[in-house]
Design a protein around this nucleic acid. Sequence first.
RNA 1: GCCGCGUUCGUCUAGGGGUCCAGGACGCCGCCCUUUCACGGCGGUAGCACGGGUUCAAAUCCCGUACGCGGUACCA
Length: 493
Amino acid sequence: MSVRVRFAPSPTGFLHIGGLRTALYNYLFARHHGGTFVLRIEDTDQTRYVEGAEDDIIRSLEWAGMTIDEGPNKPGEVGPYRQSERKAMYLDYAKQLIESGNAYYAFDTPEEIDEMRERLKASGNPSPSYDSITRQSMKNSLTLPKDEVERRLAAGDDYVVRLKVPRRETVKFEDLIRGVVSFETAGLDDQVLMKSDGMPTYHLANVVDDHTMGITHVIRGEEWLSSAPKHMLLYKAFGWEPPTMAHLPLIMSPSGGKLSKRKAESEGIPVNTKDYIAGNYEPEALVNFLAYLGWSPGDDSEIHSLQELCELFTLDRVSKGGAVFNHKKLMWYNEHYIRETSVADLAPRVKTLAEEAGLDTKSDEYLNTVIELLHERVSKVDEFVAMGSFFFETPSEYDENALKKWKEDSPAMVAAYKAKIEVLSDDEFKAAALKTALEETVAENEVGFGKVMMPVRIATTGQGFGPDLFPALELMGKDEVLSRIDTALERLR
RNA sequence: GCCGCGUUCGUCUAGGGGUCCAGGACGCCGCCCUUUCACGGCGGUAGCACGGGUUCAAAUCCCGUACGCGGUACCA
């Protein structure tokens, strides 16, 4: 049987980075086995539905390089791929369960359920639930006379369908990542399967869809592990073979706990995939980083393309414990991929970014040289613009830290250097000559190299650090360099 | 509280009874290179949660404790 996996997010917001990793593991698993990667939108909670979320999910997956084989945007044979559009079938399945004695109608109002909980809490039960004991004293098709049940149904009273969880049973299943996991049904409540608005809950829809869509492996976050026994009970009630389960470790925040939006942002970590897109991260870097967050191929390698990851990935090498998101390591990956990207590929992106910042990148040749000069010192594309803005516009101010290196004799040194280079013709204004000129200035004034170089750098770039100075000066050109020196001499006396 | 899952350097991990006084990567520190900042090279720092067992031998197996995380909804 060929492998079919699904990524099944609910469209309640932008695609979370944890969701992206879950999608990635599903994708890698599918590709590794030559299987199918399905996207299913779980929009059964109409109150939490967010407009545009589905588009964001699809766009995010595409940006990361994951190709969806089947989904709402690419219908296959088992659609539709949005649960809201499959609504009709769920009730039939729920009824099937009622008929087989595995589920029942419940007419209790939320208030009545609250009352029951309060009552039980008061009598010492810390976590009361609607279960095999309490259902006996509630209003449902198990306790109500048959004719009243029919009367209520016919009258259109609100009802839900609940799973009739067996009283004392052990539910065991094998999880590909965790091994055998076991639960007692005594700890499970009679999970609502159909809500009073006619929509199924996650649990029913998920099981029905995974089965009807031919899903062979359920790879999802660990937050689902606790409800997995309910799902196993459902498969059994339907008489279906359950898919193989694999519950992924969660991505944790550096301060501990699930990487929530609030937490992550206060720690400087973008949570939504769209923030990485907007933040100009390299998708290859994020993918590589995420793949290694909770998985490793078992050797000392660190760098792999999506395609290589597909070949290497196996679920038995996924770790069990939660993994803390390490932003610095992500940046290391990003830097790596930037360096691997050619100047030609970088150029149009840098150009767009520069233009967005209101900078003129001059000629293609000019831009390319800027990128070459900065290539090794940048860790994210937008830094080409931030670090190299002086290439595109005359600096309007001087960096505060740089100014600490502007000493009393600096104006004299810069002036001396200026005298050396202003006699050069435009053709002679090359890196080598500019360096010689500086060396001569150094020698004639009997000072250290830095005593002249740093002030010249500050005067011409406004910064106390940056690319190789002489090629940079050459690129900026004689007129611009001299004019910047004059300005600096005036302003930094 | 109850249920479930987990726990190897600060972080991500390798390791699955002897080859481990625990290997790699990020970070951090130092040195080299060097015109600055980087890159690069070299080196260093730091860990088997704890307590019992089993065994000739345990990071590896078992039990317990602690801690962490998740779940405990007509949310997913």
